[in-house]
Nucleic acid binder design. Structure first.
Length: 296
DNA sequence: TCCCAGGTCCTGA
DNA sequence: TCAGGACATGGG
């Protein structure tokens, strides 16, 4: 059973199960966490700067108090979910068994809807380091200064109000490229439809998918990521270039279309499709699966 | 120089 | 429906 203690400005959890920091932050679900020189990770959640370090099954959250733990960390890190059950239910073939073993300790973070929408709109036809840079630029320009932590300045994610009021040129200066007008447009719509969006975690997966795709810049892939990473629709299986590769290499024919890959996986993995997708994404990306010559 | 990136939109059959 | 090209930006 995990054991939680509080010390000055830190929360310590001992005997944590199914928790691996690098797997959590490197499986592509979030863009605002960075590894520090000491191996710990620092990131921004809501309006807090958090630092996390791990030593085996001991997890230390720095720069937080008990309230932050109760109000932010517990939900954000999905600490109430039993990953053992998920792993057991997904463990139906050798490929998934291998992927689960490889990515053991992955957790699906519970992120903010607005931030996830914008972040994954930026991810379209982009690279992960670049996505992170754009989000950092936007936060520094349009977010609120939070604090300086260990020598670095941290800013909150820009609000829809701020982004809606910005000039497209200003957004472009943050290197958002051709996505810039879409971001402004989404922000403006968000101001009107905030309640609809924050209610999507209570509606059906199909309803959420259809609604999100009415945004310019949100297609099938981004919508599925938003549903999975911020609306707790775990029955979705976002198909991106990496997941396509690993699926076409290991599960389906080479010419299978994304929509059919998604249906195949959602059918196979059911209500835990999203977790399966995370294990496979991490497995594929870390091992270069399907990417021509790299060793598998 | 060309190719590609956690895609999406638009166009023409 | 569906293939094919365009799209900002930067790294290899």
């Amino acid at each position: 059973m995990m054991n939680i203690t509080e010390k000055d400005n830190q929360i310590i959890i001992q005997d944590m199960k199914d928790f691996n920091l690098s797997h959590i932050f490197d499986c592509g679900q979030c863009f605002r966490w960075n590894r520090d020189d000491d191996g710990s990770y620092t990131g921004v959640v809501k309006d807090k700067v958090l630092n996390v370090e791990q030593d085996g099954s001991t997890i230390v959250f720095n720069n937080v108090n008990r309230d932050d733990y109760e109000n932010i960390i517990k939900e954000y890190f999905d600490l109430n979910t039993d990953y053992n059950e998920i792993k057991n239910l997904l463990n139906t073939d050798e490929i998934m068994a291998e992927a689960i073993k490889f990515g053991d300790g992955i957790r699906i973070l519970n992120q903010d809807e607005w931030e996830t929408m914008i972040s994954f709109m930026i991810s379209a036809n982009n690279r992960i380091p670049m996505i992170k840079k754009v989000i950092e630029n936007l936060s520094a320009k349009f977010g609120e200064f939070i604090c300086n932590y260990r020598g670095r300045d941290y800013y909150s994610f820009p609000t829809a109000e701020k982004l809606s009021a910005a000039d497209v040129e200003e957004i472009q200066e943050c290197k958002a490229g051709f996505r810039s007008p879409r971001l402004k447009e989404a922000a403006t719509r968000f101001l009107e439809e905030r309640d609809i969006i924050y209610n999507l975690k209570n509606t059906s997966y199909d309803e959420g998918l259809t609604y999100l795709k009415t945004y310019k810049g949100i297609g099938d892939k981004v919508a599925n990521c938003v549903l999975l990473f911020s609306m707790r629709h775990f029955d979705t299986f976002p198909v991106d270039v990496w997941v396509r590769r690993v699926m076409q290499t290991l599960y389906v024919d080479k010419d299978t279309k994304d929509a059919d890959i998604r249906k195949f996986a959602e059918n196979k993995f059911g209500k835990f499709s999203g977790y399966a997708q995370q294990y496979l994404f991490y497995y594929a990306r870390e091992n270069g699966i399907g990417k021509s010559v790299k060793n598998v």
